[in-house]
Each structure stands twice: as structure tokens, then as C-alpha cells.
Design a protein around this nucleic acid. Structure first.
Length: 682
DNA sequence: GATCCTCGAGTTCG
DNA sequence: CTCGAGGATC
């Protein structure tokens, strides 16, 4: 994000915002933004202060560890400040951290490392006197925390007396351990479901839940919460010499503390980097949430020499994974016109890295979407690209507003043709109703030639734009009158390419009728509906003559769809298109009448879904084979699906098919089915 | 009239 | 992939 304000103003703004969210998070346990968003803002401030050291103030959020201690619990001073960690986000930054550390140590020093999962929970400090649990405190602001001893006693995995669990190591006279209180994902989900059933407050995530549970004033309530503990650091110990972090973890284990099994001791930074690279897969398999890894210098002697800078130790660093949510600037809102004439606002974003790709645009769907979220032009916005691919603008960060933001309004006129737009009552969308709108024409042409419709090779949005602009295409039927001579001399079109395109267009005249019907772009008529219409009417001519009553009894076609079809054919402009297609010798009728003499087909009445990559043919070819044999091909697995045809790397559809016990077959199984027909089931 | 299911339409980047 | 509208079903 490139702030446009002066660095000083920006830093002040960031400080104020961060203070606010710090309080929400630490004191109220009710954050308004995610950790990733918070981290991003904090990072921006850190970078800014690094660039302009004079902007660093003593009260900057970068200069302290965390929130304020709450009044209602007794305050506890920590024996040593509970520090927080610096972050790195990729291997390069990890190596930079390593090199900085090496520069502070004698030439030739070789560091080894301990890597631990960074658990998303609540940091606590546990004091043991003479082998028994004496005091437990939250981190608070790093210097002073809250006494939550009574609540911590209810945590089942926390040893109240050490050694616990049959450990034979003698307990030190005094021991102070740092650990993380957390909650397993499953327990969290289960608890929230119960809360919902009781009509009580649900928690946003396991971390909030752990925090909220630990700060119950009544320990009896905490006792009902399935909290757990990982111990990961020895802060103070009497009578034991610990040479390394690994030894410390070993001591904790021997004393009966739970220590995460994923902790590893690694001899080189290369191994650390490899461990970090492999972690994203592994973290999925863990029963608890992690937001990264903690990389620590193993040798205690080097830890001491490295010391701390500000509030972060130099001997440890958090390796965090690139967030799937980032805050970036919404520079402008553009408006597209869709095939159906819908005006679609989209966000022009300050380019931002999200999950490995640079995102520049994101759809904003419609005016309601923008209004409900109060998204304004110039806002800092939260953009997500979760597990999916499509970026989404989630919400603005109103605290970062400068006052120059503009409320967005859809234009009253179509951005493409300038005609007045219409917003129908109780409809979300706003339409450009000009049937001659060039933007709609381009989109209609694009849809006509697309894979799901006429499937014309070498014809895409670029061609649609060019041909409409040159006046070659005034309606979709004109596609078939494009001749080689029209393309001659167009930049980028050599003879070979022209021949190919003209041949592809000509070949499309022989497409099955349902594709022609789909290509017309009648509202509500896609592949499946078009096929069922063709099966019933046999030809586009018959459909053109149909009245609403003719549609009754066709499964899947109700009054609305029937109305939509009849309405489409009632426009003279559309009838002209159909006539032009007929003149161009585009197929307008099924080869044989469907209820003809042809014998029953092997796949009659069966519904198929295709997923993944098939070994010898494309998905489209497989779909064609199925249709040829009388079967239906749909997009989503449901209870009505007869077979799922799965190739290499099938994803969610496979899971769903298993759940619904839909039989799964491969390409060979499909061929067999077509040859032999379905097995007669009892 | 309510509920469940299915299909269509639109979605970004490399 | 997700959302919402339309259709089927009870």
C-alpha cells in the first residue's frame, strides 16, 4: 500500500488505529480485524519508522508488547519481560534474520535451531514453587499481566505438581515456564454449536475462545471449557544448567509438561527453510490452529549474546505464512456491462500480493453489496482470496479514513452506450436496457462463441471486441457472415490465422441444436435447460411458435422460464437473428425426431458429472460421448447424479460423491457403460 | 407456504 | 466456487 499522505501523518494515523485494535484484542477480547490485518498494519508502521527513525515515538505500538492489564484480576509483575517476536514472511526474510544474527556473533559461529509450531492461543507464565503450581499469569502488556491462577488450575493438561505423569526428574525449587493456552479446533466447533443451541454467544475463532475462557471471573465456568496447554520455554529455573532450548524442552517433558510433538532441532538454516516450506501441508493435519512457526537459536550462550532489541529477542523469530487476507487501497470503482445488460461495479485496487499472486481487480457485484458494507472510493479495504481463487472485497477499514473518501453511486447512464439505466423494483441488479448497447453486444458475441455454447476455436473476447468495433458484427448471427476478405489487412491476422478462424466459424454451423439455443443467450436458458427444450420441441422453429402452455409438463421448466423463452422470441430483432442463422445454414433442428424409431440408448435417463483430467479425452469430448448415448451432463454432484466420472486430481466433487454414495467411475468405466449399458440393478 | 435441490451467471490471474 | 433465483416437492 502506497500511502498518499505525508509519512508523519500516516504514522500518526497508524499509531492511533493500532492502539485501538490492540485494546479491542487484548483488553476486550473482541477484535474488529483479523490478526493478519493487524500484522499488516503494524508492519507498515514498522517499515515507516525504519525509513524515518525520527517518526518513532515512545508510545508507538511498535515499542511495546501488547495491551493493558485488566482491573478485575490482580496484577502480576513478570520476573522478566514477556517479549513478542519479530516476523518474517518468506525464506529471503528468514535468511536476512539469520545473517543479522551472525554479524553480531564471532566470525565462524555456527548456529543450530529449534523450530516450534506457533500456536494461535493465549500466552501464559506459570510459576512453580517447591514443585507445585503457585501462580499463573497472562502476558498483559509484557511487563505486568493478570493473575489467572484459579482459572489455569482448571486446565487439564497443566501439571499442578511436578514432576507429573510419572516423571522422575526432581523438581527444581523454583521454576517459571512460558506456555500457550489453546483449544483444539474440534472442541471449539462443538462448543460453539452447543452455545448456538442454547442461544448464547458464539466465539469467532479458537483463539478468542481460549482468551475468553481464561478470563472468566468464575473458575467454575473455565473448568467447563476444554482448554489445553503447550509449554515451550523455561524462563527461570533453580539448580539446573540448560545449555540449549532443546534441553529446556527436554526438561519440560521430563517434568510432565505437555510439549508439542512437532518441535524439531535442526542443524542448519537450510533445514529450517525446508521445514518451513513443508509446514503448510503439515499444519492442516494438526488438531489445533497455528499461524506459523517459531524459529529459535538453540544454543543458550548465543541467545544471551544476541539479546533483545526493543521488545523482540534477536535470537528468535516468527515465520508466518502469507496471509490470505490483506489490507489495500481501493483506488477507484469501475463499471462493466454484462451480457444481460447488468451493470457490474468492480474494484480497482492498489496491486497487492495475496496468496502468491498480485491482485488488481475484484468484483463488487452490485450497488447493494457496496452500500451494505459502506465501501467508499479511496478506502483501505480488506481483500480476501481464501481457499478459492476469486478475490473478494470484504469490508473497509473505516479507522483509516482521511475524510477524502467518496461514496459510490452507480451511474445513471450506461458507461458503454450512454443510455439511461433501469433498476427494476425488488431486484438487486441495475440494467442497461438498450438492445443496441455495444458492450452488451460484445459480451453476447463472447458468450455465443464460448466453450459452453458454439465452441468456436480462436474466437474470444479480443475478436469479439475487434469485430464489433469494426462494424463487422451488429448481432450474433453476423458471426457467420465473416469472410476471409473482411479480416484481410487486420493487424495481427496473417493468412494462416484467417483461414483457421474462418474454418472454425464454418464448422460451428454443424453444432447440435441445443448449443445453438444456448448460444442465443435467453435468460435462464443454459446447457441443461436448452437440452431439455430441444428434447421436447425438436427444433428452434417449433420453439419459436410455442405459447406458454406448450411448456407445461417439461421437467425443470416452470412458468418463469417459459415466459422468458416466449418473450425472447417475441422480439422482432431476435426473430431476425434466428432467420439469419437459418439462412447461414446453422443447424436448427434435431437430426431425427426424438420420440422417433431409434431404439433406447444405453445411458437414457442417467445423469453424469465429470471432474478432473481424463487420461485420453477432454472433458468436453467425454460430455459429448455421454450425450450421444442419451445421458445428461451436469456441473454439480447431487443426489440425482447417477455417476461421477473422475479423472486425475478430482477435488471437492469426489468428496461430495462419496458422501452421497454416488458411484464413481473412470474413463474406462464410462466407455464400458456406453458399450454395455448400465448394470441392471435389483 | 416452506424447504430442498438444481441450474445459471459471473468471478481473477497466468 | 459461490450466490441467488426458479422449480419441485411435501
Amino acid at each position: 500500500m502506497r500511502p498518499t499522505a505525508s509519512p508523519a501523518a500516516r504514522a500518526a494515523k497508524l499509531r492511533a488505529v493500532l492502539h485501538h485494535h490492540n485494546y479491542r484484542y487484548h483488553v476486550l477480547d473482541d477484535p474488529e480485524i483479523t490478526d493478519a490485518e493487524f500484522d499488516a498494519l503494524l508492519r507498515e508502521l514498522k517499515d515507516l519508522e525504519a525509513e524515518h527513525p525520527d517518526l518513532r515515538t515512545p508510545d508507538s505500538p511498535t515499542q511495546r508488547v501488547g495491551g493493558t492489564a485488566q482491573e478485575r484480576f490482580a496484577k502480576v509483575g513478570h520476573p522478566v519481560p514477556m517479549l513478542s517476536l519479530g516476523n518474517v514472511f518468506d525464506e529471503e526474510e528468514l535468511r536476512a534474520w539469520h545473517e543479522r544474527a551472525l554479524r553480531l556473533l564471532p566470525q565462524g559461529t555456527e548456529l543450530s535451531f529449534v523450530v516450534e509450531p506457533k500456536i494461535d492461543g493465549l500466552s501464559v507464565l506459570l510459576h512453580y514453587e517447591g514443585g507445585s503450581f503457585a501462580l499463573g499469569a497472562t502476558r498483559g502488556d509484557g511487563e505486568v499481566g493478570e493473575d489467572v491462577t484459579a482459572n489455569l488450575r482448571t486446565v487439564q493438561t497443566l501439571p499442578l505438581a511436578i514432576p507429573a505423569g510419572g516423571g522422575r526428574t526432581k523438581a527444581p525449587r523454583r521454576l517459571v515456564v512460558r506456555g500457550e493456552v489453546y483449544m483444539e479446533r474440534d472442541a471449539f466447533t462443538r462448543f460453539n454449536e452447543e452455545q448456538l443451541a442454547r442461544g448464547e454467544k458464539v466465539y469467532a475463532n479458537p483463539r478468542n475462545f481460549a482468551a475468553g475462557s481464561l478470563r472468566q471471573l468464575d473458575p467454575a465456568v473455565t473448568a467447563t471449557r476444554p482448554l489445553r496447554l503447550w509449554a515451550y520455554q523455561v524462563v527461570v529455573v533453580d539448580g539446573a544448567e540448560l545449555d540449549s532450548q532443546w534441553d529446556a524442552l527436554d526438561l519440560l517433558r521430563r517434568l510432565g509438561f505437555p510439549v508439542a510433538g512437532e518441535c524439531a532441532r535442526l542443524a542448519t538454516l537450510d533445514e529450517v527453510a525446508a521445514f518451513c516450506a513443508a509446514w503448510p501441508e503439515r499444519r492442516e493435519t494438526l488438531p489445533y490452529e497455528t499461524d506459523g512457526l517459531v524459529v529459535k537459536v538453540d544454543q543458550r550462550a548465543y541467545q544471551e549474546r544476541l539479546g533483545a532489541v526493543g521488545n523482540a529477542p534477536r535470537w528468535a523469530v516468527a515465520y508466518k505464512y502469507p496471509s490470505t487476507e490483506v489490507v489495500t487501497k481501493l483506488n477507484a470503482i469501475g463499471v462493466n456491462v454484462g451480457r444481460t445488460g447488468v451493470l457490474m461495479p468492480y474494484a480497482e485496487l492498489e496491486p497487492a500480493q495475496i496468496g502468491g499472486v498480485v491482485v488488481r481487480n475484484a468484483t463488487l457485484h452490485n450497488a447493494d453489496y457496496i452500500r451494505e458494507r459502506d465501501i467508499r472510493i479511496g478506502d483501505s479495504v480488506v481483500v480476501k482470496r481464501a481457499g478459492e481463487v476469486i478475490p473478494q472485497v470484504l469490508r473497509p477499514v473505516p479507522e483509516l479514513r482521511t475524510g477524502d473518501e467518496q461514496v459510490f453511486e452507480l451511474p445513471a447512464n450506461c458507461p458503454a452506450c450512454g443510455e439511461k439505466v433501469v433498476r427494476l423494483e425488488d431486484e438487486v441488479a441495475t440494467y442497461c436496457v438498450n438492445s443496441a448497447c455495444p458492450a452488451q453486444l460484445v459480451r453476447s458475441v463472447e458468450y455465443f462463441v464460448s466453450r459452453g455454447a458454439m465452441d468456436i476455436d480462436g474466437f474470444g473476447i479480443r475478436q469479439a471486441e475487434q469485430f464489433v468495433e469494426r462494424g463487422l458484427i451488429k448481432d450474433v448471427a453476423d458471426i457467420f457472415s465473416i469472410a476471409a476478405a473482411d479480416l484481410d489487412g487486420m493487424p495481427g491476422y496473417q493468412q494462416k490465422r484467417i483461414d483457421k478462424l474462418v474454418a472454425a466459424i464454418s464448422a460451428a454451423k454443424d453444432r447440435p441444436v441445443w448449443r445453438v439455443l444456448t448460444a442465443l443467450g435467453i435468460r435462464g436458458v443454459g446447457e441443461v435447460v436448452a437440452q431439455s427444450l430441444v428434447a421436447h420441441f425438436g427444433s428452434i422453429d417449433a420453439l419459436e411458435r410455442a405459447v406458454p402452455e406448450d411448456f407445461t409438463g417439461i421437467t425443470g421448466i416452470g412458468p418463469i422460464l417459459a415466459g422468458s423463452v416466449v418473450e425472447w422470441f417475441s422480439h422482432p430483432r431476435n426473430r431476425r437473428i434466428v432467420e439469419k442463422l437459418r439462412v447461414a445454414a446453422v443447424r436448427m433442428a434435431e437430426e431425427q425426431v426424438p420420440e422417433g424409431t431409434a431404439g433406447p440408448k444405453p445411458l437414457d435417463g442417467l445423469a453424469f458429472v465429470i471432474t478432473g483430467t481424463l487420461p485420453t479425452c477432454s472433458r468436453e469430448q467425454a460430455a459429448e460421448m455421454i450425450r450421444g448415448a442419451g445421458g445428461k451432463v451436469t456441473g454439480a454432484v447431487s443426489a440425482k447424479t447417477s455417476y461421477l466420472v473422475a479423472g486425475e486430481a478430482g477435488g471437492g466433487k469426489l468428496d461430495k460423491a462419496r458422501k452421497l454414495s454416488v458411484p464413481v467411475i473412470d474413463e474406462a468405466g464410462l466407455l464400458e457403460l456406453i458399450a454395455a449399458g448400465p448394470p441392471r440393478s435389483a
